[in-house]
Design a protein around this nucleic acid. Structure first.
Length: 112
RNA sequence: GAAGCAAACCGGUCUAUCGCUGCCGAGAGGAAGAAAGUCGGCGUAAAUAGCAGGGCUUAAUCCCAUCGGUUGAGGAAAGUCCGGGCAGCACAGAGCACCGCAGCGGUUAACGGCCGUCAGGCAGAACGCAUAAUGGACACCCACCCGCCCGAAGCGUGAAUGUUUGGUCACUGCUACAGAGACGAGUCGCUGCAUCAGCAGCGGGUGAAACGAGCACACUGCGGGCUGCAAUUCCAUGUAAACCAACGAACGAGCGUUGCUCGCGCCAGUUCCGCAAGGAUGCGUUGGAGGGUAGGAAGCGAGAGAAGCACGUGGUAACACGUUGCUCGAGAUUAAUGAUAGACGCUGCUUCGGCAGUACAGAACCCGGCUUAUAGGUUUGCUUUCUUU
């Protein structure tokens, strides 16, 4: 129920370009969400930009936090299938609780 | 015991819940899926072109879900500064240019690294000398004076150790200002020789330096082919206005007009564009061969290794050698190695209840170095000084 296996990750240059070109966008601070509905299963991409976080260890940490927040709250999406990208926007590192709160809000917004 | 150095090493642990990469096993049953094919849609008056998360079909490839087991970041993984392996391309030999290195000797696969050593400079705990002023302490019945000790800059000596500089000046050049002159020029004074011209010697003056130096864009020795795993190789599908072949068109040739010459006539494609018009271009058709990008696999780690630690031998050491013993075992690709909660450990402060902190930082083909970042801790060695015996 809370798993996040490999085939749930969004990969491939073509589908990522398509998502960023045509997807709908909104912001739930500190996350910028780009999403579009999908015919097959839901696939997700998380990203922390190098321009905001110079060290790889910080980017890894934020990516893992966002991934865990999605994994534990993915039932908020219901039965729909989507392609979603989460971009981290803040210069400061938030803790897990605030990222999880933003994640729940974002997933409910996509569903509704 | 204190102080100052150097080298080597470690750099969190446990529990609970949820989860991920690779590998192994079980396992109902297949699953995913391409710029390709095909059928539709939009577009248009209708087509072509074009547009898009469309449906269906299949390629390489992979076995998916589920269950069980196992596995998983560093001393710097970092910077990408040197040197190699490996890969592709180039390549007769030698030299020039360019770039790098530079006491001497050694070490290594190699190096700008490392080890030993020589000379000069700098830093260096501590010690010695020295005393200004308001001073401190001793002495003194008290005050003043004198004496003595301490006392900062300062001067000197200077351990372990660290750091820095170090080829040559025959050739080609450079050395500001000052100076007659910084190299083929010669001033002032004196002396000697000489008929004169001048020659030789000594001294003064300038300057960091005046036939004696220093330096490099000069010379000498040694090294360097270029590009990097986004290298490179393979798989399947399809193909371009580039390649090959055949055929055709255009130009030319030829044919017609004509005595000859000149001149005129005898075609149509591709592309931009919805069509036409207009513009650009010189080729078109058929067949063959065949990339790049995107996708997948290898390269990529038990086919690991110039691997590490003991022990032995040689060497001052770096290091080398060994029929010796033991140990290590990540491999992602929109990118795993985690998240949350609690406890312990360590460090500092403490009103002894606690409180605060717990670093630097994340593999991306692999090694040897260097450089930079780093909470806290351990061990060993050296030097000086004090105490005890």
């Amino acid at each position: 129920m809370y798993s996040f296996p490999k085939h749930s990750k969004l990969c491939g240059q073509k589908s990522i370009e398509q998502l960023y070109k045509e997807g709908k966008r909104f912001v739930v601070w500190p996350l910028r969400v780009t999403w579009m509905s999908s015919e097959s299963e839901t696939r997700v991409l998380v990203w922390a930009p190098k321009s905001l976080f110079k060290h790889a260890v910080d980017r890894n940490r934020l990516r893992r936090l966002m991934r865990e927040a999605y994994r534990l709250n993915q039932d908020c999406l219901g039965d729909g299938h989507y392609m979603i990208a989460f971009n981290y926007m803040d210069k400061e590192q938030h803790n897990y609780a605030s990222i999880a709160k933003a994640m729940r809000k974002a997933l409910n917004k996509i569903k509704g």
